[in-house]
Design a binder for these strands. Structure first.
Length: 462
RNA sequence: GGCGACGUACCCAAGUGGCUAAGGGAGAGGUCUGCAAAACCUUUAUGCCCCGGUUCAAAUCCGGGCGUCGCCUCCA
């Protein structure tokens, strides 16, 4: 497998630290609000990565944190007159609702900043002891100039950053780029005891602490959104490597942005949709399919039109599997067809080689569509039972690797609808097509699509 | 200003040195059907932002433009 590593800017052959095992850490949400659809993209992307590793036989340890203490959470809690704990707890719950809907598998562990406070404090103590950190009147800071490799991930050099001069004013800091490891609490703010006084951890430190706690140093893969490259991941590297003296992470992976009107979706611009809003209007699997229809590192533009396109594409795949499953019962009438079997295996291999090449889901999906087309052409000519199963299984399996369930389970219609379908069939038999079409329209209004096939009436929900 | 990414058909989107440039959507024509839907067949880029260059050979490499976007500040 080849993976694009942000650190080196090239695709590299993936060599795990431990044979057949992968340790990956993905930066999770700061829980003060619902996640938006842009946040969701990177979670979907890394879920796809994780699923693919598992498909290829790796044992994956997947760690994703919750940032459950931070300025924004404090602000939100104050606004609502709630405690920080209540706010974070609530939005962790909401996160799981969205993530579950999108088919994102649960992580192996979900560490939270507030639950690893002792580890954080001892980590910072180490840094202070080694001379990488210093205290000020408002906290403890990491001294960037002590870490000579600072900027190696984001390809920035400290001189340019300083002259860029968009850093906040804080006379206490020795260098404008220095960042907080520990923030002392202002009156009324929640706090934890520490050798430097009552306070809370800075944002970057938790990820260094939690990743090393569960995965050690170095570990295989660290992922996150593209806007985390600088400064968050850069700072993680500085802290972790300063402390441990060894490489922090072997492969850095970053997803592309999900844009809207070709611009980054962001809360300050107000141009974002929450996952919740979108899921009111679209099947979550459609959203997931849309997100995976482009390569994970490329930016994708979000629009309802594109979502509609994705939905039609996904329906094509679902229809095919549906038809194949339907044929199962009539297998005896079909002639054998080894070709389908072979074709399915061929496309499966193509899928794998696309995915092996830095998780090229766009190309991988094209092989699924090829499989669908091939199967569709054979449905009418007739294929053997094994071949039909094989085709349906292959499509279902590969979509499953992408985390997209086809959900073609048979559900029962209520009696009223059942009766209407029968009524329409009678109308058709007596060639009363006006009445038949009427009923079809009525059902359509209820979300039931009818299709007349040589095997009888088929229905599906829209 | 510094650093970086991207620009492929009407739309989305792979391909990054060499068979006739994947795949999906949309459109057009056809098969099937009472009609519709689904499905199938045919069709839609002699060309991959522009201009140079390297090469037997470039969408793919190099140089220069133009355009779009991002990071440099909390942000997935």
């Amino acid at each position: 497998m080849r993976i694009y590593n942000t650190m080196t800017g090239t695709k590299e052959e993936f060599v795990p630290l431990k044979k057949d095992c992968v340790g990956m850490y993905v930066c999770g949400p700061t829980v003060y609000n619902y996640i938006h659809i842009g946040n969701a993209r990177s979670f979907v992307v890394f879920d796809m990565v994780r699923r693919y590793f598992e498909y290829r036989g790796y044992d994956v340890t997947f760690v994703q944190n919750f940032t459950d203490i931070d300025d924004k959470i404090i602000r939100k809690a104050n606004e609502e007159g709630a405690s920080v704990f209540e706010v974070s707890e609530r939005y962790i719950g909401e996160y799981f609702k969205d993530a579950d809907a999108l088919g994102i598998e649960r992580a192996t562990v979900y560490p939270r900043a507030t639950r690893v406070m002792e580890d954080i404090i001892s980590f910072i103590s180490d840094l202070v002891g080694k001379g990488y950190a210093y205290g000020t009147q408002d906290g403890v800071y990491f001294s960037v100039e002590k870490f000579k490799d600072y900027g190696k991930l984001s390809k920035k050099n400290t001189d340019d950053l300083i002259s860029g001069a968009r850093v906040d004013v804080n006379e206490q800091k020795k260098n404008p780029l220095d960042f907080a490891l520990w923030k002392l609490a202002k009156p009324g703010e929640p706090y934890w005891e520490s050798p430097w006084g009552q306070g809370r951890p800075g944002w970057h430190i938790e990820c260094s602490v939690m990743s090393s706690k569960y995965l050690g140093n170095p570990f295989d893969i660290h992922g996150g959104g593209p806007d985390l490259v600088f400064p968050h991941h850069e700072n993680e590297i500085a802290q972790s490597e300063a402390k441990s003296g060894v490489r922090f992470v072997n492969y850095w992976m970053h997803a592309g942005y999900l844009n809207i009107d070709n611009q980054k979706m962001s809360k300050s611009l107000g141009n974002f949709f929450t996952v919740r809003e979108i899921l009111d209007r679209y099947d979550p699997m459609t959203v997931r399919f849309f997100m995976l229809s482009a390569h994970y590192r490329n930016p994708i533009n979000f629009s309802f039109e594109l979502l509609d396109q994705a939905q039609v594409g996904l329906d094509r795949i679902k229809n095919c599997v549906f038809r194949l499953r339907e044929l199962k019962g009539r297998a005896g009438e079909c002639a054998g067809d080894k070709e389908v079997l072979q074709y399915a295996e061929e496309q499966r291999q193509n899928f794998i080689s696309s995915m092996d090449d830095d998780f090229n889901t766009a190309e991988a999906i094209s092989h699924i569509f090829n499989m669908v087309s091939f199967a569709n052409t054979r449905i009418d000519d007739g294929s053997g039972q094994a071949a039909i199963d094989c085709a349906a299984d292959a499509v279902t399996e590969l979509m499953g690797v992408l985390g997209i369930s086809l959900d073609i389970k048979k559900e029962l219609l209520d009696e009223e609808i059942e009766r209407q379908i029968e009524e329409r069939q009678q109308a058709r038999r007596r060639k009363d097509y006006a009445a038949a079409d009427n009923i079809r329209d009525e059902l359509k209004a209820k979300g039931i699509i009818l299709e007349d096939t040589p095997q009888g009436v088929r229905w599906k929900r829209r």
